[in-house]
Design a protein around this nucleic acid. Structure first.
Lengths: 194, 194
DNA sequence: ATAATAAACTAATATGATTAGTTTTACAAG
DNA sequence: CTTGTAAAACTAATCATATTAGTTTATTAT
Protein backbone atom coordinates (compact mmCIF):
# COMPACT_ATOMS: atom_id res chain seq x y z
CA UNK A 1 0.00 0.00 0.00
CA UNK A 2 2.83 2.38 -0.79
CA UNK A 3 1.57 5.84 -1.53
CA UNK A 4 1.31 6.80 -5.14
CA UNK A 5 1.96 10.46 -4.44
CA UNK A 6 -0.98 11.70 -6.47
CA UNK A 7 -2.48 15.14 -6.40
CA UNK A 8 -5.30 16.88 -8.21
CA UNK A 9 -3.11 18.32 -10.93
CA UNK A 10 -1.57 14.96 -11.75
CA UNK A 11 -5.04 13.48 -12.11
CA UNK A 12 -6.17 16.24 -14.42
CA UNK A 13 -3.10 15.87 -16.63
CA UNK A 14 -3.53 12.11 -16.82
CA UNK A 15 -7.22 12.50 -17.57
CA UNK A 16 -6.42 15.01 -20.31
CA UNK A 17 -4.04 12.50 -21.89
CA UNK A 18 -6.72 9.86 -21.78
CA UNK A 19 -9.25 12.23 -23.31
CA UNK A 20 -6.96 13.18 -26.19
CA UNK A 21 -5.70 9.68 -26.86
CA UNK A 22 -8.85 7.62 -26.35
CA UNK A 23 -11.72 10.07 -26.55
CA UNK A 24 -13.77 11.75 -23.86
CA UNK A 25 -16.05 8.78 -23.36
CA UNK A 26 -13.04 6.72 -22.28
CA UNK A 27 -12.26 9.07 -19.43
CA UNK A 28 -13.63 6.87 -16.68
CA UNK A 29 -12.47 6.73 -13.11
CA UNK A 30 -11.68 3.07 -13.68
CA UNK A 31 -9.40 3.86 -16.63
CA UNK A 32 -7.81 6.81 -14.87
CA UNK A 33 -7.12 4.78 -11.75
CA UNK A 34 -5.59 2.01 -13.85
CA UNK A 35 -3.37 4.49 -15.67
CA UNK A 36 -2.17 5.87 -12.35
CA UNK A 37 -1.69 2.47 -10.71
CA UNK A 38 -4.33 3.00 -8.05
CA UNK A 39 -7.83 1.79 -7.16
CA UNK A 40 -10.79 3.91 -8.25
CA UNK A 41 -11.90 4.97 -4.77
CA UNK A 42 -8.46 6.47 -4.11
CA UNK A 43 -9.15 9.14 -6.71
CA UNK A 44 -11.82 10.61 -4.44
CA UNK A 45 -9.07 11.91 -2.21
CA UNK A 46 -8.17 14.37 -4.96
CA UNK A 47 -11.25 14.99 -7.05
CA UNK A 48 -14.94 15.32 -6.49
CA UNK A 49 -15.99 12.25 -8.42
CA UNK A 50 -16.30 12.07 -12.16
CA UNK A 51 -18.34 15.25 -12.34
CA UNK A 52 -15.67 17.15 -10.46
CA UNK A 53 -12.95 15.77 -12.69
CA UNK A 54 -14.84 16.91 -15.77
CA UNK A 55 -15.14 20.40 -14.41
CA UNK A 56 -11.41 20.50 -13.69
CA UNK A 57 -10.70 19.22 -17.18
CA UNK A 58 -12.85 21.98 -18.66
CA UNK A 59 -11.00 24.63 -16.67
CA UNK A 60 -7.63 23.17 -17.61
CA UNK A 61 -8.63 23.04 -21.28
CA UNK A 62 -9.89 26.63 -21.28
CA UNK A 63 -6.65 27.82 -19.70
CA UNK A 64 -4.56 26.02 -22.29
CA UNK A 65 -6.79 27.35 -25.03
CA UNK A 66 -6.46 30.87 -23.71
CA UNK A 67 -2.68 30.60 -23.52
CA UNK A 68 -2.47 29.37 -27.11
CA UNK A 69 -4.79 32.06 -28.41
CA UNK A 70 -3.27 34.93 -26.52
CA UNK A 71 0.28 33.93 -27.52
CA UNK A 72 -0.79 33.77 -31.14
CA UNK A 73 -2.59 37.10 -31.15
CA UNK A 74 0.20 38.86 -29.26
CA UNK A 75 1.43 41.86 -31.18
CA UNK A 76 -0.97 41.42 -34.09
CA UNK A 77 -3.78 43.80 -34.93
CA UNK A 78 -6.97 43.76 -36.92
CA UNK A 79 -7.49 41.07 -39.49
CA UNK A 80 -4.10 39.49 -38.92
CA UNK A 81 -4.87 39.11 -35.24
CA UNK A 82 -8.17 37.41 -36.02
CA UNK A 83 -6.48 34.95 -38.32
CA UNK A 84 -3.74 34.22 -35.79
CA UNK A 85 -6.26 33.75 -33.00
CA UNK A 86 -8.42 31.51 -35.14
CA UNK A 87 -5.58 29.31 -36.25
CA UNK A 88 -4.47 28.95 -32.65
CA UNK A 89 -8.00 27.95 -31.65
CA UNK A 90 -8.34 25.33 -34.37
CA UNK A 91 -4.79 24.15 -33.75
CA UNK A 92 -5.53 23.59 -30.11
CA UNK A 93 -8.69 21.69 -30.92
CA UNK A 94 -6.70 19.52 -33.33
CA UNK A 95 -3.90 18.76 -30.94
CA UNK A 96 -6.19 18.22 -27.97
CA UNK A 97 -9.48 16.94 -29.32
CA UNK A 98 -10.58 15.37 -26.07
CA UNK A 99 -9.57 18.24 -23.86
CA UNK A 100 -11.16 20.67 -26.30
CA UNK A 101 -14.39 18.76 -26.09
CA UNK A 102 -14.51 18.98 -22.30
CA UNK A 103 -14.21 22.73 -22.68
CA UNK A 104 -17.75 23.06 -23.93
CA UNK A 105 -19.70 21.96 -20.90
CA UNK A 106 -21.98 24.71 -19.75
CA UNK A 107 -20.81 25.84 -16.32
CA UNK A 108 -23.10 25.06 -13.41
CA UNK A 109 -24.27 28.27 -11.86
CA UNK A 110 -21.87 29.47 -9.23
CA UNK A 111 -18.90 27.64 -10.66
CA UNK A 112 -16.75 30.72 -10.61
CA UNK A 113 -13.49 29.02 -11.61
CA UNK A 114 -15.00 27.62 -14.77
CA UNK A 115 -16.82 30.84 -15.53
CA UNK A 116 -13.60 32.77 -15.08
CA UNK A 117 -11.66 30.50 -17.41
CA UNK A 118 -14.36 30.83 -20.05
CA UNK A 119 -14.57 34.55 -19.45
CA UNK A 120 -10.87 35.04 -20.21
CA UNK A 121 -11.24 33.39 -23.59
CA UNK A 122 -14.30 35.46 -24.32
CA UNK A 123 -12.60 38.69 -23.32
CA UNK A 124 -9.69 37.94 -25.59
CA UNK A 125 -11.98 37.48 -28.57
CA UNK A 126 -13.88 40.65 -27.71
CA UNK A 127 -10.64 42.55 -27.53
CA UNK A 128 -9.32 41.29 -30.85
CA UNK A 129 -12.58 42.10 -32.60
CA UNK A 130 -12.81 45.56 -31.05
CA UNK A 131 -10.42 46.87 -33.73
CA UNK A 132 -13.17 46.78 -36.33
CA UNK A 133 -14.97 49.86 -35.11
CA UNK A 134 -18.32 48.26 -34.37
CA UNK A 135 -20.56 49.66 -31.69
CA UNK A 136 -20.76 47.71 -28.47
CA UNK A 137 -23.77 45.66 -29.45
CA UNK A 138 -22.38 45.02 -32.91
CA UNK A 139 -19.17 43.84 -31.38
CA UNK A 140 -20.98 41.34 -29.18
CA UNK A 141 -22.87 39.97 -32.15
CA UNK A 142 -19.58 39.68 -34.00
CA UNK A 143 -18.06 37.78 -31.09
CA UNK A 144 -20.92 35.32 -31.22
CA UNK A 145 -20.29 34.94 -34.90
CA UNK A 146 -16.59 34.25 -34.55
CA UNK A 147 -17.13 31.83 -31.70
CA UNK A 148 -19.71 29.98 -33.75
CA UNK A 149 -17.31 29.73 -36.66
CA UNK A 150 -14.42 28.54 -34.55
CA UNK A 151 -16.37 26.01 -32.56
CA UNK A 152 -18.32 24.75 -35.53
CA UNK A 153 -15.24 24.28 -37.62
CA UNK A 154 -13.38 22.53 -34.81
CA UNK A 155 -16.23 20.23 -33.93
CA UNK A 156 -16.90 19.22 -37.52
CA UNK A 157 -13.23 18.70 -38.25
CA UNK A 158 -12.62 16.67 -35.11
CA UNK A 159 -15.61 14.46 -35.75
CA UNK A 160 -14.66 13.78 -39.32
CA UNK A 161 -17.62 15.78 -40.52
CA UNK A 162 -15.70 17.22 -43.46
CA UNK A 163 -15.61 14.35 -45.88
CA UNK A 164 -14.39 16.17 -48.95
CA UNK A 165 -10.71 15.87 -49.93
CA UNK A 166 -10.04 19.58 -49.66
CA UNK A 167 -7.38 21.38 -47.64
CA UNK A 168 -8.81 22.23 -44.24
CA UNK A 169 -6.53 25.18 -43.63
CA UNK A 170 -7.64 26.77 -46.86
CA UNK A 171 -11.25 26.31 -45.81
CA UNK A 172 -10.58 27.95 -42.48
CA UNK A 173 -8.64 30.88 -43.90
CA UNK A 174 -11.34 31.56 -46.46
CA UNK A 175 -14.05 31.33 -43.87
CA UNK A 176 -12.38 33.80 -41.55
CA UNK A 177 -11.50 36.11 -44.38
CA UNK A 178 -15.04 36.06 -45.70
CA UNK A 179 -16.47 36.79 -42.28
CA UNK A 180 -14.16 39.74 -41.72
CA UNK A 181 -14.81 41.04 -45.21
CA UNK A 182 -18.51 40.67 -44.56
CA UNK A 183 -18.36 42.66 -41.35
CA UNK A 184 -16.53 45.41 -43.20
CA UNK A 185 -18.65 45.38 -46.34
CA UNK A 186 -21.94 45.49 -44.51
CA UNK A 187 -21.08 48.69 -42.75
CA UNK A 188 -23.90 50.40 -40.90
CA UNK A 189 -26.91 50.48 -43.19
CA UNK A 190 -27.65 46.80 -43.58
CA UNK A 191 -30.50 46.28 -41.17
CA UNK A 192 -33.36 46.12 -43.62
CA UNK A 193 -33.68 42.38 -43.28
CA UNK A 194 -34.43 42.05 -39.60
CA UNK B 1 -46.52 -11.10 -20.40
CA UNK B 2 -48.86 -9.42 -22.90
CA UNK B 3 -46.99 -8.08 -25.89
CA UNK B 4 -46.24 -4.42 -25.91
CA UNK B 5 -46.43 -4.16 -29.69
CA UNK B 6 -43.14 -2.36 -30.09
CA UNK B 7 -41.18 -1.88 -33.26
CA UNK B 8 -38.00 -0.12 -34.23
CA UNK B 9 -39.68 3.10 -35.22
CA UNK B 10 -41.58 3.35 -31.95
CA UNK B 11 -38.33 2.91 -30.07
CA UNK B 12 -36.59 5.60 -32.08
CA UNK B 13 -39.44 8.07 -31.54
CA UNK B 14 -39.52 7.38 -27.81
CA UNK B 15 -35.74 7.70 -27.61
CA UNK B 16 -35.90 11.00 -29.49
CA UNK B 17 -38.44 12.29 -26.98
CA UNK B 18 -36.16 11.26 -24.15
CA UNK B 19 -33.20 12.93 -25.81
CA UNK B 20 -35.03 16.22 -26.32
CA UNK B 21 -36.68 16.27 -22.91
CA UNK B 22 -33.92 14.93 -20.68
CA UNK B 23 -30.72 15.26 -22.69
CA UNK B 24 -28.76 12.77 -24.71
CA UNK B 25 -26.96 11.32 -21.72
CA UNK B 26 -30.32 10.23 -20.30
CA UNK B 27 -31.08 8.10 -23.32
CA UNK B 28 -30.32 4.78 -21.70
CA UNK B 29 -31.83 1.44 -22.51
CA UNK B 30 -33.06 1.31 -18.94
CA UNK B 31 -34.88 4.63 -19.24
CA UNK B 32 -36.23 3.79 -22.67
CA UNK B 33 -37.51 0.41 -21.50
CA UNK B 34 -39.18 2.04 -18.50
CA UNK B 35 -40.82 4.65 -20.73
CA UNK B 36 -42.17 1.88 -22.96
CA UNK B 37 -43.27 -0.37 -20.10
CA UNK B 38 -40.91 -3.17 -20.96
CA UNK B 39 -37.71 -4.77 -19.62
CA UNK B 40 -34.39 -3.63 -21.09
CA UNK B 41 -33.50 -6.93 -22.81
CA UNK B 42 -36.74 -6.79 -24.78
CA UNK B 43 -35.43 -3.80 -26.67
CA UNK B 44 -32.84 -6.00 -28.33
CA UNK B 45 -35.60 -7.53 -30.42
CA UNK B 46 -35.87 -4.21 -32.25
CA UNK B 47 -32.50 -2.47 -32.03
CA UNK B 48 -28.88 -3.44 -32.08
CA UNK B 49 -28.09 -2.37 -28.55
CA UNK B 50 -27.42 1.18 -27.46
CA UNK B 51 -24.94 1.77 -30.27
CA UNK B 52 -27.50 0.71 -32.84
CA UNK B 53 -30.15 2.93 -31.29
CA UNK B 54 -27.82 5.91 -31.45
CA UNK B 55 -27.18 5.32 -35.12
CA UNK B 56 -30.91 5.11 -35.79
CA UNK B 57 -31.43 8.31 -33.83
CA UNK B 58 -28.78 10.06 -35.91
CA UNK B 59 -30.45 8.95 -39.15
CA UNK B 60 -33.86 9.99 -37.87
CA UNK B 61 -32.51 13.37 -36.81
CA UNK B 62 -30.79 13.98 -40.14
CA UNK B 63 -33.97 13.13 -42.00
CA UNK B 64 -36.02 15.52 -39.89
CA UNK B 65 -33.37 18.17 -40.31
CA UNK B 66 -33.35 17.69 -44.06
CA UNK B 67 -37.12 17.95 -44.25
CA UNK B 68 -37.12 21.18 -42.25
CA UNK B 69 -34.33 22.71 -44.31
CA UNK B 70 -35.64 21.72 -47.68
CA UNK B 71 -39.16 22.91 -46.88
CA UNK B 72 -37.75 26.26 -45.76
CA UNK B 73 -35.53 26.73 -48.79
CA UNK B 74 -38.24 25.67 -51.23
CA UNK B 75 -38.83 28.32 -53.82
CA UNK B 76 -36.22 30.74 -52.47
CA UNK B 77 -33.03 31.72 -54.27
CA UNK B 78 -29.66 33.17 -53.42
CA UNK B 79 -29.26 35.01 -50.16
CA UNK B 80 -32.88 34.57 -49.15
CA UNK B 81 -32.57 30.83 -49.55
CA UNK B 82 -29.47 30.77 -47.37
CA UNK B 83 -31.22 32.70 -44.64
CA UNK B 84 -34.27 30.45 -44.81
CA UNK B 85 -32.16 27.33 -44.74
CA UNK B 86 -30.12 28.63 -41.83
CA UNK B 87 -33.11 29.60 -39.76
CA UNK B 88 -34.63 26.19 -40.35
CA UNK B 89 -31.40 24.54 -39.23
CA UNK B 90 -31.13 26.55 -36.04
CA UNK B 91 -34.85 26.19 -35.43
CA UNK B 92 -34.60 22.43 -35.64
CA UNK B 93 -31.66 22.39 -33.26
CA UNK B 94 -33.66 24.53 -30.84
CA UNK B 95 -36.77 22.41 -30.96
CA UNK B 96 -34.90 19.13 -30.87
CA UNK B 97 -31.69 19.72 -28.96
CA UNK B 98 -31.15 16.10 -28.07
CA UNK B 99 -32.00 14.71 -31.45
CA UNK B 100 -29.85 17.36 -33.07
CA UNK B 101 -26.93 16.34 -30.90
CA UNK B 102 -27.19 12.72 -31.97
CA UNK B 103 -26.94 13.91 -35.54
CA UNK B 104 -23.28 14.73 -35.19
CA UNK B 105 -21.83 11.29 -34.58
CA UNK B 106 -19.33 10.47 -37.27
CA UNK B 107 -20.66 7.54 -39.29
CA UNK B 108 -18.83 4.27 -38.96
CA UNK B 109 -17.42 3.31 -42.31
CA UNK B 110 -19.88 1.33 -44.34
CA UNK B 111 -22.89 2.73 -42.56
CA UNK B 112 -24.61 3.63 -45.79
CA UNK B 113 -27.93 4.66 -44.26
CA UNK B 114 -26.29 7.22 -42.01
CA UNK B 115 -23.98 8.40 -44.77
CA UNK B 116 -26.95 8.80 -47.10
CA UNK B 117 -28.91 10.83 -44.55
CA UNK B 118 -25.94 13.11 -43.99
CA UNK B 119 -25.31 13.30 -47.71
CA UNK B 120 -28.79 14.60 -48.41
CA UNK B 121 -28.31 17.48 -45.99
CA UNK B 122 -24.93 18.22 -47.50
CA UNK B 123 -26.27 18.19 -51.05
CA UNK B 124 -29.00 20.59 -50.13
CA UNK B 125 -26.48 23.08 -48.74
CA UNK B 126 -24.28 22.68 -51.80
CA UNK B 127 -27.24 23.35 -54.03
CA UNK B 128 -28.34 26.46 -52.18
CA UNK B 129 -24.84 27.89 -52.21
CA UNK B 130 -24.32 27.12 -55.88
CA UNK B 131 -26.19 30.31 -56.79
CA UNK B 132 -23.23 32.42 -55.80
CA UNK B 133 -21.18 31.68 -58.87
CA UNK B 134 -18.16 30.20 -57.14
CA UNK B 135 -16.07 27.59 -58.87
CA UNK B 136 -16.50 24.02 -57.70
CA UNK B 137 -13.68 24.13 -55.18
CA UNK B 138 -14.75 27.50 -53.92
CA UNK B 139 -18.25 26.22 -53.45
CA UNK B 140 -17.05 23.28 -51.35
CA UNK B 141 -15.05 25.61 -49.14
CA UNK B 142 -18.14 27.77 -48.79
CA UNK B 143 -20.21 24.76 -47.78
CA UNK B 144 -17.72 23.96 -45.06
CA UNK B 145 -17.98 27.53 -43.91
CA UNK B 146 -21.75 27.54 -43.72
CA UNK B 147 -21.87 24.17 -41.99
CA UNK B 148 -19.36 25.42 -39.44
CA UNK B 149 -21.43 28.51 -38.80
CA UNK B 150 -24.67 26.61 -38.44
CA UNK B 151 -23.33 23.87 -36.25
CA UNK B 152 -21.24 26.20 -34.12
CA UNK B 153 -24.13 28.54 -33.53
CA UNK B 154 -26.51 25.70 -32.68
CA UNK B 155 -24.11 23.96 -30.36
CA UNK B 156 -23.20 27.12 -28.47
CA UNK B 157 -26.80 28.23 -28.20
CA UNK B 158 -28.02 24.84 -27.02
CA UNK B 159 -25.31 24.55 -24.40
CA UNK B 160 -25.94 28.00 -23.03
CA UNK B 161 -22.61 29.16 -24.37
CA UNK B 162 -23.98 32.58 -25.27
CA UNK B 163 -24.19 34.33 -21.95
CA UNK B 164 -24.85 37.85 -23.13
CA UNK B 165 -28.41 39.21 -23.01
CA UNK B 166 -28.57 39.84 -26.74
CA UNK B 167 -31.16 38.66 -29.24
CA UNK B 168 -30.01 35.36 -30.69
CA UNK B 169 -31.93 35.72 -33.93
CA UNK B 170 -30.27 39.04 -34.60
CA UNK B 171 -26.88 37.43 -34.01
CA UNK B 172 -27.67 34.65 -36.44
CA UNK B 173 -29.03 36.93 -39.14
CA UNK B 174 -26.02 39.19 -38.91
CA UNK B 175 -23.64 36.26 -39.02
CA UNK B 176 -25.21 34.77 -42.13
CA UNK B 177 -25.46 38.12 -43.79
CA UNK B 178 -21.84 38.92 -43.06
CA UNK B 179 -20.70 35.57 -44.40
CA UNK B 180 -22.63 35.97 -47.63
CA UNK B 181 -21.44 39.55 -48.02
CA UNK B 182 -17.91 38.33 -47.40
CA UNK B 183 -18.13 35.70 -50.09
CA UNK B 184 -19.38 38.31 -52.52
CA UNK B 185 -16.96 41.08 -51.51
CA UNK B 186 -13.90 38.91 -51.68
CA UNK B 187 -14.50 38.02 -55.29
CA UNK B 188 -11.71 36.25 -57.11
CA UNK B 189 -8.47 38.05 -56.36
CA UNK B 190 -8.25 37.54 -52.61
CA UNK B 191 -5.73 34.73 -52.34
CA UNK B 192 -2.71 36.72 -51.34
CA UNK B 193 -2.89 35.57 -47.74
CA UNK B 194 -2.56 31.82 -48.21
C1' DA C 1 -55.09 -27.42 -35.16
C1' DT C 2 -50.44 -26.96 -35.20
C1' DA C 3 -45.85 -25.52 -36.24
C1' DA C 4 -42.77 -21.74 -36.69
C1' DT C 5 -41.52 -17.13 -35.69
C1' DA C 6 -41.21 -13.15 -33.06
C1' DA C 7 -41.46 -10.72 -28.80
C1' DA C 8 -41.43 -10.65 -24.43
C1' DC C 9 -39.46 -12.50 -20.06
C1' DT C 10 -36.00 -14.06 -16.06
C1' DA C 11 -31.44 -14.80 -14.65
C1' DA C 12 -26.77 -13.88 -14.78
C1' DT C 13 -22.45 -11.38 -15.92
C1' DA C 14 -19.49 -7.38 -16.58
C1' DT C 15 -18.22 -2.64 -16.08
C1' DG C 16 -18.33 1.53 -13.86
C1' DA C 17 -19.42 5.13 -10.03
C1' DT C 18 -19.81 5.76 -5.49
C1' DT C 19 -19.98 5.28 -0.31
C1' DA C 20 -18.54 3.37 4.15
C1' DG C 21 -15.28 2.03 6.93
C1' DT C 22 -10.34 0.53 7.63
C1' DT C 23 -5.36 0.56 7.35
C1' DT C 24 -1.12 2.59 6.59
C1' DT C 25 1.97 6.11 5.50
C1' DA C 26 4.05 10.69 6.27
C1' DC C 27 5.02 14.17 9.16
C1' DA C 28 5.10 17.34 12.94
C1' DA C 29 5.23 18.18 17.98
C1' DG C 30 6.75 16.90 22.13
C1' DC D 1 12.88 8.96 19.41
C1' DT D 2 8.17 8.45 20.32
C1' DT D 3 3.58 9.43 19.38
C1' DG D 4 -0.59 11.51 17.66
C1' DT D 5 -2.94 13.34 13.62
C1' DA D 6 -4.22 13.85 8.99
C1' DA D 7 -3.96 12.45 4.44
C1' DA D 8 -3.92 8.81 1.17
C1' DA D 9 -4.42 4.59 0.04
C1' DC D 10 -7.09 0.27 0.59
C1' DT D 11 -11.15 -3.47 0.79
C1' DA D 12 -15.87 -4.42 0.67
C1' DA D 13 -20.31 -3.41 -0.61
C1' DT D 14 -24.09 -1.15 -3.25
C1' DC D 15 -26.32 0.67 -7.25
C1' DA D 16 -27.07 1.45 -12.09
C1' DT D 17 -26.42 0.19 -16.67
C1' DA D 18 -25.54 -2.78 -20.84
C1' DT D 19 -25.51 -7.08 -22.53
C1' DT D 20 -25.96 -12.22 -23.27
C1' DA D 21 -28.13 -16.76 -22.63
C1' DG D 22 -31.80 -19.32 -22.33
C1' DT D 23 -36.95 -19.63 -21.59
C1' DT D 24 -41.82 -18.73 -22.18
C1' DT D 25 -45.67 -17.03 -24.56
C1' DA D 26 -48.24 -14.80 -28.09
C1' DT D 27 -49.01 -14.27 -32.93
C1' DT D 28 -49.20 -15.83 -37.47
C1' DA D 29 -49.01 -18.79 -41.34
C1' DT D 30 -49.79 -23.33 -43.02
Amino acid sequence: MARAGLDTHTLVLAAAELADAQGVQEVTLAALAAKLGVRPPSLYNHINGLAGLRTLLAIHGLEQLYDAMSAAAEGARGEQAVHALSQAYIGFARQHPGLYETTLRAPEEGDTALEAAGGKVLSLIIQVLSCFGLDEEGNLHAVRGLRSILHGFSALENQGGFGMPLDLNVSLTRLIRAYIAGIRCMGEGADELE
